[in-house]
Design a binder for these strands. Structure first.
Lengths: 197, 197
DNA sequence: GTAGAATCGGAGTGATCACTCCGTTAAGAA
DNA sequence: TTCTTAACGGAGTGATCACTCCGATTCTAC
């Protein structure tokens, strides 16, 4: 259904061929993404488009002009999150201690996802996301993981797919245990210990 | 809202004070639970009540007579699953090898939840479920875990809360990786290794 | 400033869904 | 078999939601 209007955040639209958005339109789009992330995290993906529009101080029409479908909005929010994730991984990759970098990253992602919503929620999937972003995520996680493995801090028998699956599961674990920080910490420790050699 | 009609499956209703259900009513109730579990697992909890009624060969009215609310139906399905889980744990507790029993149980639950839906889905929570069932689950898991810990197969610094959180997270991991069995197995192995001493 | 296009706002639309109501059916006691 | 009544079926109801449409409002190039 959504074939042409597939561009997700602002990347391609703004830089290439298509004329840049008007100033107010850019502002609205950014604000919508911001608000949508917060609202979806707080009330789940069933939060209504109208609520997001109201919260962002725009009309529903504006939401649907920027994101032709609710699913497109969800995907855009998800892509944003993925981008940030990949950036964090990138920033840690050059660390002097790859093992610590890896575990810091893992812990950080899980802790963020415990309050914010789970990493991959409601049918949106790293697989289905634009290949550019997916490639970025896979590359960044791959470097971080490889570094930690070479340093002997992480076992050798896993790759990026296993890492992604564990990140998602551990996020769910943390979300479930979010009422008791001690439980949360001990549960996470088990996954981290399992990752070590 | 749902104060009085809170009985979930058939336990209390049938055995105590209230007159037993008519034969057809009992059949319908059981069939509804069965169908609902399958449908919710396949299409998520947003599957409509009408679809479940149709699949079960009854009218919507019948669904709402047995389960006054969609949420009540979801809870009943969930309680069923929890009961089975506790029974499985009970059956394994008397095993001669408590360590193997524990890991068999964990693996079994996770594998079931990978195709069926996640253990605790969509806002229904072990905490909110009738205390009788909750107690059963906690007792059964507690025995299994304690046995494995005494046998030296599982680390000592976790309890039932951590175990529940990990079961839920590992189920999510398995669900995410359900397309690639090898990934699924390696991810699960990491959690299991983390649980060992 | 002003023209003209891009963008906005929000009432309106059709679809879907949980839940109700009541006429009909059939279980089960006598 | 008959009578009572528990249980059933499914059309109907109101609410909600994603999405559309177009007149009103900016923005921006000149």
């Amino acid at each position: 259904m959504t074939e042409r209007r597939d561009a997700t955040t602002e990347g391609k639209d703004a830089m290439a061929e298509r004329r840049p958005l008007r100033a107010d339109a850019q502002r609205n789009r950014a604000r919508l993404l911001e608000v949508a992330e917060r609202v979806f995290a707080a009330k789940g993906t069933s939060a209504s488009t109208e609520e997001i529009a109201r919260e962002a101080g725009v009309g529903v029409g504006t939401v649907f002009r920027h994101f032709p479908t609710k699913e497109a909005l969800l995907e855009a929010v998800f892509v944003c999150r993925l981008r940030r994730l990949a950036d964090e991984a990138d920033a840690l990759t050059s660390s002097t201690d790859p093992g610590t970098a890896f575990f810091t990253f893992f812990t950080g992602v899980v802790e963020q996802s415990a309050t914010k919503n789970a990493l991959a929620e409601a049918g949106i999937d790293v697989q289905r996301v634009s290949s550019e972003v997916r490639a970025h995520v896979v590359r960044a996680l791959g470097s971080l993981l490889a570094g930690a493995q070479e340093a002997g801090a992480v076992r050798d028998d896993i790759g990026v797919p296993e890492l992604l699956a564990l990140l998602i599961g551990a996020s769910r674990t943390a979300e479930y245990a979010s009422e008791d920080r001690a439980v949360q910490a001990r549960a996470l420790a088990i996954v981290l210990d399992g990752l070590r050699r």
